[in-house]
């Protein structure tokens, strides 16, 4: 009973918050409506007994949506929604796509011959997850590791306006580096902060 109540409250809330993303004018509100939708969608994971995954989704989504807000507000016009504007573009096309997707998924839900559960869930699912990661799914983790490395490198290459040649000079010998605002981890700063006073 309690489970059903929680499920329906979260389900309706998630859909409502998802709709709100397109109904509000403000980028900030849209981002946090999306966050609310994600958090509410994470609760059913808890209902399934996947405590770790459920809380992890909440944790990750908060961090990622805050970062998302940073970019939404940087690059979208009218971030506070103080000017009247519409969040919806290409109405017909998107309506067709979303209706099509919904129909395919709904038909799938109804028509697929869902398998019966075989065996019982492990007593500690988090432990089982860890074992799977360290055992049968190790390759996944390694590939993701390299993927993340590539993400870091490409993000820096694509987004950072200055590179090492701007900072250290063409022969990479300039010390300290020439930055508009100095940081804290280079030889000069570290000596002054951790070294003896003048």
């Amino acid at each position: 009973m309690a489970q059903a109540v929680v499920f329906w409250v979260c389900a309706i809330g998630a859909v409502a918050a998802g709709l709100a993303v397109f109904r509000v004018d403000s980028m900030a509100r849209a981002t946090f409506a999306l966050l609310a939708s994600f958090v509410l969608a994470a609760v059913p994971l808890l209902l399934l007994g996947l405590s770790y995954l459920g809380i992890l989704v909440i944790l990750m989504m908060i961090m990622e949506m805050v970062v998302m807000a940073v970019f939404m507000i940087m690059y979208m016009m009218n971030p506070a929604g103080l000017m009247p504007m519409s969040m919806v573009h290409n109405k017909k096309g998107s309506l067709a796509i979303s209706t099509g997707t919904f129909v395919v998924l709904a038909v799938g839900v109804l028509l697929v011959d869902w398998p019966q559960r075989q065996g019982v869930p492990p007593p500690d699912v988090t432990f089982a997850l860890g074992e799977a990661l360290m055992g049968s799914h190790m390759l996944v983790m390694l590939v993701i590791g390299l993927g993340l490395f590539a993400t870091i490198v490409s993000a820096v290459v694509l987004s950072h306006p200055r590179g090492r040649y701007d900072r250290f000079g063409d022969d990479l010998r300039r010390r300290p580096p020439d930055d508009p605002i100095p940081g804290s981890v280079d030889a000069r700063s570290l000596t002054r902060i951790f070294g003896v006073g003048r």
């Binding site: 405590s51 909440i58 807000a69």
Partner: peptide, 19 residues
């Protein structure tokens, strides 16, 4: 069972809240 992650997740709420 995931108390440590729970603490972590609740603490991160402050990011969104303060912003």
């Amino acid at each position: 069972s995931i108390g440590i992650v729970w603490f972590n997740a609740m603490e991160v709420v402050t990011w969104a809240a303060l912003w």
